[in-house]
């Protein structure tokens, strides 16, 4: 499924990079994925390893934030698995019900595993990474603007 370099440290680094790329794709809009695939064209034909589908994942919390786990509630998740003609298999899971986006992500995951195309896939994902980091910076900035310093008043005069 993925290149297996002789050095296990390389294998770990490769897996971490793949996880990072898949995390970005899970947050990419369908229109962004359209643009990325267009940029990477022509693409080998992709066939479904299983039909893209929507299901549920049970999310969990921890008692007290850091203790024993409990089931919090479910979230919808779309997933897809594809195989590229003459290439690797690709997988994708993402929150929500956008199976088209999941399938596009699975194709990109498969392309990424081809070392000859990896850099191109990463480059094409750069705008999505930039959008995501700008959004979280925006959220931090607007939240930081509401930071207060409460002070307590001394009661009495002696």
């Amino acid at each position: 499924m993925q290149p297996s370099p002789a050095d296990p440290r390389d294998a770990n680094a490769c897996r971490t990079a793949r996880q990072g790329m898949m995390a970005v794709m899970a947050r990419a809009e369908s229109t962004e994925l359209d643009a990325i695939l267009a940029q990477l064209a022509p693409l080998p034909a992709a066939s479904n390893l299983k039909p893209p589908e929507v299901g549920l994942v049970m999310l969990r919390g921890r008692t007290g934030g850091d203790g024993a786990p409990f089931n919090l509630g479910e979230a919808t998740v779309a997933r897809a698995a594809v195989r590229l003609e003459g290439g690797a298999s690709g997988f994708a899971y993402r929150l929500g019900r956008d199976v088209k986006a999941a399938r596009q992500s699975a194709i990109l995951d498969a392309l990424w595993q081809d070392e000859a195309r990896r850099a191109a896939v990463e480059d094409a994902l750069a705008p999505v990474r930039a959008r995501l980091s700008s959004e979280s910076a925006g959220a931090r900035a607007e939240t930081a603007a509401t930071k207060v310093d409460f002070f307590t008043l001394v009661r009495g005069e002696d």
């Binding site: 969990r60 919390g61 934030g65 939240t143």
Partner: peptide
């Protein structure tokens, strides 16, 4: 609606210490 969907599995427990805090 939720009863119409298959369950893929259980997620890892959310880490609220790593939250992007909005409040």
């Amino acid at each position: 609606f939720r009863t119409t969907l298959p369950r893929f599995g259980y997620a890892k427990a959310l880490d609220t210490a790593e939250m992007l805090v909005r409040r």
